[in-house]
Deep mutational scan, measured.
Amino acid sequence: GKRLNIQLKKGTEGLGFSITSRDVTIGGSAPIYVKNILPRGAAIQDGRLKAGDRLIEVNGVDLVGKSQEEVVSLLRSTKMEGTVSLLVFRQED
């Protein structure tokens, strides 16, 4: 696979993607993946982020050990017109 650095500018329609966690172990944390890209928002305008990408970092914060809720609040904490920096891991087909 490969790592991608993606910067998304948060506009009025938001970042435009949803996340999910897979393989949750009890008391553990699961990897966070991009669930889908919404028809409006920064992600589809940028065009690089894809469903199935694994989020590794948000704005330089390592997501290991973070819950899905914590990751959502990290993403939401970005101000309007601010930039969210994502490091994602993509499995090659």
Rank of each mutant, 00 (worst) to 15 (best):
G1I: 15
K2Y: 08
K2R: 12
K2C: 15
R3A: 09
R3Y: 14
R3Q: 08
R3F: 12
R3D: 10
L4D: 03
L4R: 02
L4Y: 11
N5G: 07
N5S: 12
N5V: 14
I6G: 00
I6W: 00
I6M: 04
I6L: 04
I6V: 10
I6A: 00
I6S: 01
Q7Y: 14
Q7F: 12
L8S: 01
L8E: 01
L8A: 02
L8F: 11
K9W: 13
K9H: 13
G11S: 11
G11I: 08
G11D: 06
G11N: 14
T12S: 13
T12K: 15
E13Q: 09
G14H: 04
G14P: 06
L15P: 02
L15A: 02
L15F: 09
G16D: 04
G16S: 05
F17A: 00
F17S: 00
S18I: 10
I19K: 00
I19F: 03
I19V: 12
I19C: 03
I19R: 01
T20L: 06
T20G: 09
T20V: 05
S21T: 10
S21Y: 07
S21L: 07
R22A: 13
R22I: 11
R22S: 13
R22P: 15
R22N: 15
D23M: 08
V24L: 10
V24T: 13
V24A: 13
V24G: 08
T25H: 12
I26N: 13
I26E: 15
I26G: 12
I26Q: 12
I26T: 15
G27S: 15
G28V: 03
G28S: 05
G28D: 06
S29K: 14
S29D: 11
S29H: 15
A30G: 08
A30S: 10
A30T: 04
A30M: 07
P31E: 07
P31A: 10
I32T: 05
I32P: 01
I32K: 03
I32A: 04
Y33V: 11
Y33A: 05
V34D: 05
K35T: 11
N36S: 13
N36L: 05
P39V: 08
P39D: 13
P39A: 06
R40V: 05
G41N: 00
G41K: 01
G41R: 00
G41A: 03
A42H: 04
A42D: 04
A42S: 08
A43T: 01
A43F: 00
I44A: 12
I44P: 07
I44K: 13
G47P: 01
G47Q: 04
R48T: 06
R48C: 04
L49N: 01
L49K: 03
K50S: 05
A51D: 10
A51I: 13
A51G: 06
A51K: 07
G52R: 05
G52I: 01
G52K: 04
D53V: 03
D53P: 00
L55K: 03
L55F: 03
L55P: 01
I56N: 02
I56F: 05
E57N: 14
E57R: 10
N59C: 04
N59K: 02
N59P: 00
N59F: 02
G60F: 02
G60P: 01
G60K: 04
G60R: 04
G60E: 04
V61W: 06
V61C: 07
V61S: 07
V61E: 07
D62F: 04
D62K: 14
L63V: 09
L63Q: 02
L63H: 00
L63I: 09
L63E: 01
V64F: 11
V64S: 14
V64L: 13
G65Y: 06
G65C: 06
G65E: 06
G65N: 10
G65I: 02
G65T: 07
K66C: 05
K66W: 14
K66V: 06
S67Q: 09
S67E: 09
Q68V: 14
Q68E: 15
E69R: 15
E70Y: 10
E70W: 14
V72S: 12
V72R: 12
S73E: 15
S73I: 08
S73M: 11
S73V: 08
L74Y: 05
L74A: 05
L74K: 03
L74V: 05
L75C: 06
L75R: 00
L75E: 04
L75K: 01
R76M: 09
S77V: 10
S77P: 06
S77W: 10
S77N: 11
S77C: 14
S77D: 11
T78Q: 10
T78D: 09
T78R: 06
K79F: 14
K79Y: 14
K79C: 08
K79D: 11
K79M: 13
K79E: 14
M80H: 15
E81C: 06
E81D: 12
E81Q: 13
E81H: 11
T83G: 05
T83L: 12
T83W: 09
V84R: 00
V84S: 02
L87I: 10
L87H: 12
V88A: 07
V88K: 02
V88C: 07
V88L: 05
V88W: 02
F89E: 15
F89M: 13
F89Q: 13
F89W: 12
R90L: 01
Q91E: 14
Q91F: 07
Q91P: 14
Q91A: 13
Q91W: 06
Q91R: 11
E92Y: 06
D93M: 10
D93Q: 15
